[in-house]
Design a protein around this nucleic acid. Sequence first.
DNA 1: GCAAATCTGTACCGCGGGTACAGTTGTCGA
DNA 2: TCGACAACTGTACCCGCGGTACAGATTTGC
Lengths: 208, 208
Amino acid sequence: MGKGVETRERLLDIAETAILQKGFGGTSIEELIAEVGITKSGFFYHFRDKNQLAHTLLQRHLERDEAILNNIFGRARDLTDDPLHTLLVGLKLMAEMMADLPDGHPGCLVTTYCYNERLFDQELRNLNRQGVEAWRIRFRGMIDDINARYPPREDIDPDQLADMVSTVIEGGIVISKVLRDPALLPQQILLLRSYIRLLYSPGREFDS
Amino acid sequence: MGKGVETRERLLDIAETAILQKGFGGTSIEELIAEVGITKSGFFYHFRDKNQLAHTLLQRHLERDEAILNNIFGRARDLTDDPLHTLLVGLKLMAEMMADLPDGHPGCLVTTYCYNERLFDQELRNLNRQGVEAWRIRFRGMIDDINARYPPREDIDPDQLADMVSTVIEGGIVISKVLRDPALLPQQILLLRSYIRLLYSPGREFDS
DNA sequence: GCAAATCTGTACCGCGGGTACAGTTGTCGA
DNA sequence: TCGACAACTGTACCCGCGGTACAGATTTGC
């Protein structure tokens, strides 16, 4: 890794932490360069402006996030062939991962950007949306596989159920942070898991 | 309503909208006074500084929120004496209210403040937490009433289930906004409702 | 008609985002 | 060993914004 790339990554790390704690408008370039130990000119060598920093940051975040999800549900698929079990195991692994974060989840850029939307251009808002759409597609695929084998106890729209994963994670992060209770996020993921298990549990399948 | 109170309320309205779209640090006093039509001196007559504006805003938000929830679940209680029905009807009413918002939900200050926490003092962060704790207490009470009459199909911690309401609402607002789909938030609330119905549905109550 | 509430006007400070551009330092291959 | 390029530093400047400090004007209510 070259020296430039390293500085750039450190800049991105510090910027991400700061933005999650103070929002985009509340984060100054000056504080970032002070922490990295470069000058303002150095910052503008790496990024055209603050907006491009935001763009790069979100892109990196979404890529990492996808890699993590691929890892989790890849491991889940290694453990079982059953699509329902795969999702349930995956959610369990996800909850365990969240529970292992020592200081709790630091926050998600998607939510921060959502509540800073008017500071960004259309392109960045679209990138954020595509990130959430990718989650929907991922979980929608898994739910389709489950529905193909198990009859749900209620007639639920698969897109809505897929979006519920994103909803519980983003909401869980917020409530967990506000209450300063790191355990809350994994608990909420396990409640979602409980819902899915109940939804596909056998018994009284054909009651109207 | 006096002239001063009216100006103050308009200032708060405009500030709330701006902060939900641009975050606290991204919202300038200058833009607020420009829209209200007063001078900077006028602003500082009403609020000591930006921080006090944030405080007043959150307090107002939490009070209004409590009034709305009282109204919704009050109406639900008028319709039925059964605690499970009350919660299910209340969630239905809440979903309908969210669906009736023409431009979708504008966002929740609790989440914005959560992702701007380092811009605020301890007192404001505590106020935010107390708001979420009030939600927990409210829903925890309703869940206790349900548990006293119905055996849940799974052994769920009542506090966690209560927090799931907050989680789904805050998360639903975020995902709804990012995807620009106002229908998503009410749908997610109805999924939560579906979970609670399944959790307390009769049949196979005593399977281990 | 007087006091208090509700502002306006003016002047000022320092920080932060951003622009512009010239100069410096280290690395690496020909 | 030299030169090109990456990765910066240094300096100077502009303007918007948060905030301070007042003094003065206008409106409202009793």
